[in-house]
């Protein structure tokens, strides 16, 4: 961003300590070298992702041993659960709690490796199967919310950078407020207006399209606030960048400049925020699914946390962490593909 349009006498010298231009060295090995570099990148990233996944499993394994008291009791819902001796014995046997901790740890990893997440205490069901059933609903919610947020953000960012000062101020004001809105409050307001007031949508998320509208909008608004700000910042940067000057000097129209050049630059940072957006949506899903009484991963997590259903909590945490790691990896790959500048680093 530095020195846009400034008489930058020293750029030649400023570049001096840096490495030679990328083209200089990339030329030798040619395409083979590039493929090699891509393979190396993927290998190191996948290894990194695997490490994080292992570390998450390890961290959670040891963290639940921080719970005061008997771990078997904790797994059965804490001291208040008044679990029977047989149940405790069964849990101890299942988790090998009578074994040395190293053995327990290795066994736990082994179980995770084959996708065995244990049995939910509160629901008495296989956690993996349970989550498998809950996942699609939450995924649908999150993807729709993401799409709506992108559209809202893009619309707002484009509109507010097009006109004069008023639309710019209104646009950025709306975005700041939207980003500060807690999900539960949006949900309350939307229910008040559109369910209680107008009666357009049900206050409880019934199956079908009508039941999806309010949860999706609730999730999308704050996300759109953040994405919109990021997009607008990069839109403004791109609109002032020298390459748009040369595009205009070539005879490109304002609309053409935006379509051909600027939008791509505006979308880039929003893409790079996908990992963050995923986390934001998952957190939001906990609140939204609870308020709209919609079955899904978020509500399952909240119930599990409230009931201290440790196997279920661990299951959700691991699934979400794994998904997050995959999303981040894909985001980075997408960015690498879209923006050759990130490849040099």
């Amino acid at each position: 961003m530095s020195g846009v349009g400034a008489p930058d006498r020293g750029s030649a010298a400023a570049a001096a300590p840096g490495p030679a231009p990328a083209g200089g060295r990339g030329r030798g090995p040619g395409d083979a070298g590039r493929i090699g570099a891509a393979a190396r990148w993927w290998a190191s990233r996948v290894a990194g992702a695997a490490f994080v996944l292992w570390a998450v499993a390890t961290l959670t394994f040891f963290a639940i041993r921080l719970i005061p008291g008997d771990p078997a009791e904790a797994i059965l819902g804490g001291p208040g659960s008044q679990a029977s001796d047989e149940a405790l014995a069964a849990v101890r046997a299942e988790y090998g709690l009578d074994q040395p901790i190293a053995v327990q740890y290795v066994r736990q990893l082994g179980r995770l490796a084959v996708g065995d997440l244990g049995t939910s205490y509160s629901l008495r069901e296989d956690v993996a199967a349970l989550l498998g059933a809950q996942l699609p609903g939450t995924l649908l919610l999150a993807v729709l919310a993401l799409a709506v947020a992108w559209l809202l953000a893009l619309a707002l960012a484009t509109w507010s950078t097009r006109g004069g000062r008023v639309s710019a101020a209104v646009g950025s004001g709306l975005e700041v407020i939207a980003a500060a809105l807690p999900h539960f409050w949006i949900a309350i307001v939307l229910i008040l207006v559109f369910s209680t007031g107008l009666g357009w949508f049900p206050p409880i998320s019934t199956p079908g399209v009508a039941g999806l509208v309010l949860p999706v909008v609730t999730l999308a608004i704050p996300l759109a606030g953040f994405l919109g700000q990021v997009m607008r910042e990069s839109l403004l940067d791109a609109l002032e960048a020298p390459f748009t000057v040369s595009a205009r000097a070539r005879g490109e129209s304002e609309a053409g400049v935006r379509q051909v050049h600027v939008l791509r630059h505006a979308a880039l940072p929003a893409v790079s925020l996908s990992g963050w957006a995923f986390g934001f949506l998952v957190s939001g899903a906990v609140v939204v699914e609870t308020i709209f009484a919609r079955p899904g991963l978020g509500r399952t997590l909240l119930n599990a946390v409230t009931l201290r259903d440790i196997p279920l909590v661990l299951g959700v945490v691991l699934v979400v962490a794994a998904a997050y790691i995959v999303v981040t990896l894909l985001t980075d790959a997408a960015q690498r593909l879209l923006d050759p500048r990130t490849r040099a680093a």
């Binding site: 750029s11 960048a241 390459f243 000057v245 040369s246 051909v260 050049h261 791509r264 880039l268 500048r341």
Partner: peptide, 12 residues
């Protein structure tokens, strides 16, 4: 323009 790096769209 002066700075061809910035004067050509870096994404195209």
């Amino acid at each position: 323009l002066q700075d061809a790096l910035a004067s050509l769209d870096p994404l195209r």
